[in-house]
Design a protein around this nucleic acid. Structure first.
Lengths: 179, 179
DNA sequence: GTTTGTGTACCGTCCAGACGGTATAGTAGC
DNA sequence: GCTACTATACCGTCTGGACGGTACACAAAC
């Protein structure tokens, strides 16, 4: 299998993500994921030996991707990167992350492993913000605004307009710099 | 049935809330809720004619309670009330609200009705904050910090210490007043 | 003032379907 | 001959929901 082709494994994880976003965790069955990925049920179970293993795989993939984001943000400016990332509306990946995050609690089909992978993402952003912003109270405010934006963007709660987000970003940058 | 006794209906909703918090939405089955409430399955279905109806009932109850909170907060000061409400860690009602909120999406067993009831709560707080804070950008920042706090408090993401919350509150009040 | 009827508040059982997971036999490509 | 699958059949379990029945309170009707 060539390295420029998408692996079946990734196709399966994409299918899981899509189903999670579109139908929610109750729509995720082994057969549905297999069908969505264009794979037989047996084929799916060849790659992921159980449903929990499937969720673990997706969580792990999110973590690896987000580690990259965070590392880059530490170079280019964490405040702006964080608020931009948190605002992504209608982004499939963000919606998937949220869907996985909410599916995670309340279901014991999610292992502590997956949970830790996802929490790591939040912790990683937190650490990056505190590294960049001297005052810890301001850093926490920025973090909470970002988490609030993420919650809004991805869960149907009213989301501020892009212009408002820009003004919020400017205000927070001011707070972080002088004073 | 005396008016000082708790109704069976409320006992059932309490049971649903408890199960939602402790086991998550996958732990919510008609039989489990009935058992938790000390009612037979048939009895449960007498009060709520389907699982969706059951969720609707809980969402509606949250909305009614929260309308009261918001109305009071408009009298006593929305900023502080909002951030305090959002910080409630290990509060059963808040945890239940969160559990319901996350169970809501991703399952079609939740009607638009229930969804609207919960979104109303977020909208209500938003309106109260904007009524109290002249500058809309500041008002949005306060709202997002609160939503971020709520997300943190209730979902396992790292939560700031109570002292930090106090300092955040003070900082936000300063922002809201002068300038 | 007891028979008759109506509504409310349940209980217990049953069932068709869906689900996770296992198993097995077979196939195409390297 | 091993890897990466497909296809199909099957099992045990659980679930939402439907259903029939029960107990009791209250009210007319006679």
């Amino acid at each position: 299998m060539g390295q420029d082709e998408i692996t079946t494994r990734d196709r399966i994880l994409n299918a899981l993500q899509r189903l999670l976003v579109e139908k929610g965790s109750s729509g995720v069955t082994l057969e549905a994921v297999a069908a969505e990925a264009g794979v037989s049920k047996g084929g799916l179970l060849y790659h992921f030996k159980s449903k929990a293993d499937l969720y673990n795989g997706l969580a792990r993939r999110y973590r690896l991707v987000e580690e990259e984001h965070i590392a880059e943000a530490r170079r280019t400016g964490a405040i702006e990167a964080f608020l931009r990332v948190s605002t992504v509306e209608s982004d499939e990946s963000a919606a998937g992350l949220w869907a996985l995050f909410t599916a995670l609690r309340g279901t014991d089909e999610l292992s502590a492993e997956a949970r830790d992978d996802l929490l790591f993402i939040f912790e990683g952003w937190k650490a990056a913000l505190h590294a960049e912003i001297a005052d810890p109270v301001t850093a926490e405010i920025v973090r909470l605004v970002g988490d609030g934006l993420f919650l809004s963007a991805v869960s149907g709660v009213p989301v501020p307009s892009p212009e408002t987000v820009d003004r919020i970003l400017k205000r927070l940058k001011d707070l972080a710099e002088h004073r």
